[in-house]
Amino acid sequence: MTDLLQQSTSLWNVSMFIVAAVVLLLVVLFFVTYAIYFERKVIGWMQLRTGPNRVGPLGLLQTVVDVTKLLLKEDTRPKDADKALYALAPVLAYAPAFAVLAVMPFSETIQFADLGIGVLYYMALSSITVLGVITAGWASNNKYSLIGGMRSAAQMISYEVPLVMSVLGVILMTGSMNLREIVEAQRDIWNVIPQILGFCVFIVAAQAELNRTPFDLPEAESELVAGYHVEYSGFRFAMFMLAEYVYMFGMGSLVTILFLGGWLAPFGLDFLPIPGIVWFILKFLLYVFFQFWIRATMPRFRADQLLPFAWKGLLPIALVNILITAVVISFQNGTL
């Protein structure tokens, strides 16, 4: 599939690109639909409930119905909202979330673009989403959404720093920013073992990047009602919702690739005739489950403790991790 990028542009390969994108979109939509279902079920069980079980067998169609409802809803807009920005914000939030998936190697063969700076691409694009969130908060002309937007900006920008820093250890070890190479470098041992410190920082920072519990301050429903998307409904709200879950998809993939050995089989189970994509999905689901588990367990952070935690807690740990990694690698290379 990556060959297509090398070919000269033609109707055929352009349409192939589009088809592939649509397929990916459908896959992602399918994931989002069932991630939400899964989330509701899992959390339901954790909370002594049954979760959705009415629409379709076992409630499997619940999310489908919900999404349909959102799509059919009237498109409302607050009277004094900034018309253009209000419409732009959901797109701004969603587009980068989808775009980052382009560089993800889901298996040895399934990848859309094999960028040499895959990690950087992901980080760079995902930062754009915060613009969408701030725009939404501002454009809604609502105090709650404004506060939510501001919180979100402060949080996402702050946590991006330890997030990137924690990945540096992996990059140092691999010597490459190419995601495929990072996976291949984990044949012997997954990065999660030598980079345990970086992994911990990454998981925490990722949680904050995703605005999920315990870092769900931007949309803290008990304080800000719904945060930056309080005025959104219908299709536009669905876009935000979609962005959130697609980011979870993206972040899950990234964690799998960076730390959990991507599509590689665990525990020397290479001999089994199981395609890499299955391993990838399993690891990825493990992370997604972890998300839900956290959500059912943790209370929310306090706004004024959030930023100190990033700057005084995570960042130093990430820096120490880089130092240790650098020292160890230098030692191994005999340069120290």
Partner: peptide, 16 residues
Amino acid sequence: YLLDIGAMSPFLFAFR
């Protein structure tokens, strides 16, 4: 109270 604080599960345990 824990719902206010952002934890959801205790609410359901308490109500049980």
